[in-house]
Design a protein around this nucleic acid. Structure first.
Lengths: 95, 95
DNA sequence: TTGCTTTATCGTTTATTGACGATTAACGAT
DNA sequence: ATCGTTAATCGTCAATAAACGATAAAGCAA
């Protein structure tokens, strides 16, 4: 069983996903499994600084973390946090 | 199978849950099943207008709808939309 | 060292949130 | 017709988000 999660953290996670671009970034990180970095910027029609800002929000929610890899940064999904989200949502609304 | 959901709507749903108070309101509506109205205001240390604003966001996401019941308004969870959220989240990160 | 790539951060601007009190509208009772 | 209750909306204000360009820091290559 996943460790329980408080409503404050939950709200932060939901807020991290409250933008289409961030949802797409998370989906991409999930399918790529391995990390990513500058490639994410090239996936979207936004500036590097804007994407960096979105990544920062995802990081602050705990859903994602970044590791410095030479001159670049690799982003990964924190599966523990993702599973906390999944567990909570699955339990919502009974059965 | 639930009808699929586009990322824009999804982001709106996540945004609706991006605040602790709105998460608690949804949880309450789920457990009460039947509708609610002014009672919701009395559950929180916020003014009537603030709660009304939160309910408006929940309504706009589709998660919740309100029916005028005499002088009051009864709020209910739209289970179809809730299930769309649950289906999407469950599928995230493919087990 | 000098340069190139990558990414985080700063400063700015506009738009949206979150909270409030006050007002308005609708209904039921008296 | 007047009053009390309920709830939505308006206006305000401070804080945060969303986007951008510009700058800075860190690492690799030459």
């Amino acid at each position: 069983m996943e460790s329980t999660i408080d409503v404050e953290h939950l709200a932060k996670i939901f807020k991290a996903l409250a933008h289409p671009t961030r949802i797409k970034i998370l989906e991409h990180l999930i399918t790529i499994d391995s990390c990513i970095c500058n490639d994410i910027v090239n996936l979207f029609p936004f500036s590097q600084s804007t994407i960096s800002q979105h990544l920062k929000l995802l990081k602050e929610s705990g859903l994602v973390y970044g590791e410095i890899e030479g001159p670049a940064t690799c982003y990964c999904v924190d599966k523990t946090v993702l599973n906390q989200l999944k567990t909570y949502t699955a339990q919502l609304g009974g059965e």
